[in-house]
Computed example of a mutant assay.
Amino acid sequence: MQMVRVARNWWSHSKTVALIWSICFILYFSLLHMANKISSSQNIIPSATTASSASDADPSTANRVQRSVLYDRMARDLDEHGPKFLKHGETSQSLSLSDIFTLKDGHVTPVLKAASPPVRANVLYLNPEYSIPISKAVQNVFGPYFDKAIWFQNSSLYHFSMFHASHHITPVPATADEIETEATSVRAVAEGLCPLKIVLDRVVLTSTGVLLGCWQVTSGADPITIRAKLRIALPRAPEKQLYDAAILHTSFARLLGHPKDSPTEPSRQLQFFHELVDRINSKIRGTEAMVSELWYVEEYDVLALALDGRMKARKFHLGCKRT
């Protein structure tokens, strides 16, 4: 009987111990599960904060990135579409090269056609202090190979197209009074803009033969902001503008024919053009400049700014005034 009583006591004690251990294990794993859930929740919170921070990033940084992506795409254009300018293709403004240039006996002459109504363009102006050295470098690199089959942009008219109150694709007629009102509105925009400090990000050659300088803004008004302000100031302007809102570019030259002593095999021909672009980039990439004028230009000839045509320019200094 004594043995039976001992066995029963041992069994009762064992069940108690087992129950206690079971409760401990359950509590342990419950707490561990809760800790994991809390940890997971905490890991999610920083991600949301990071996403919010990215969306609230400095707009100027986002604009620079947007321009870089755009310039990358422009730089690929020649490889993707080939040198269409050798076959007398179109310009970036849907005009054929024969519409704006004649090439006779190796000499290039612009074709000046009256714009009816006149194009009304708003452009930032690049001072000759900066444009002349660039123009000389471009002529030194490209001139020997293209002789007369090239059009060099007039260095006294280097500009960055911003916004059109009227363009040749969507003309918006205006009376003399309406033009004066537009000019006054543009002056007000200019007074509120700060001068731009810019740097030449790269030079690209497009499939249509345009040698472009693609710029970044390091301080001052951003092109996206400028275009947005001009959109408000010029409510009658065409909804569809000619260029991307972020772009800041100027034309240096336009190639119109085959280079001298160049390969005729397509892949080697492309390589030849890339080498010329690399050469000009090695000379002028990184050039810094200040832009302090916004022009309201009436172009009486189509592409007057690009072709030295007839025009009337109203020049406004960027005043950096707070409104």
Rank of each mutant, 00 (worst) to 15 (best):
P173Q: 02
E129I: 01
T184F: 05
Q153N: 10
V108S: 14
S251V: 13
D177T: 09
S22N: 09
L86R: 02
T175D: 08
V217H: 03
L318C: 00
W10N: 07
Q153C: 11
I132S: 09
R227E: 00
E129G: 01
S185N: 14
K315W: 00
A54P: 01
E299C: 08
L205C: 09
L70W: 12
L200S: 01
H249C: 10
S262H: 10
T250M: 08
T218P: 00
Q269W: 02
S60A: 13
G209Q: 06
Q153G: 02
L32Y: 14
V17S: 03
K229R: 15
W11Q: 15
S94L: 08
T323D: 08
F163C: 13
F146I: 04
V138F: 04
A75M: 08
F316G: 03
S161F: 07
F272W: 14
V123Q: 09
K113D: 07
A237F: 08
V210I: 12
K283T: 12
Y28P: 01
D261R: 04
T170D: 06
N140A: 15
D77I: 05
A304R: 05
S131I: 00
I38L: 13
T175C: 04
S262V: 12
V4H: 13
T218F: 00
G143Q: 06
R310M: 10
R310A: 11
T218M: 03
K113M: 13
P83S: 04
T175Q: 03
N63W: 15
D177R: 05
V141K: 02
S161T: 14
A246K: 07
G319R: 07
A313M: 10
Y296K: 10
P117I: 00
D261E: 12
R120D: 06
A51L: 14
V277Q: 05
N140E: 15
F85A: 11
C24A: 12
C194G: 07
S60E: 13
S92W: 08
G89Q: 01
I100S: 04
V172T: 07
S155E: 15
W10F: 13
W295R: 12
N122R: 04
F316Y: 14
H249D: 09
F252P: 04
T49I: 10
R254T: 10
V199E: 08
S135T: 05
A246I: 09
P83Q: 02
A18I: 14
I247R: 01
A304D: 12
V277R: 05
F272E: 06
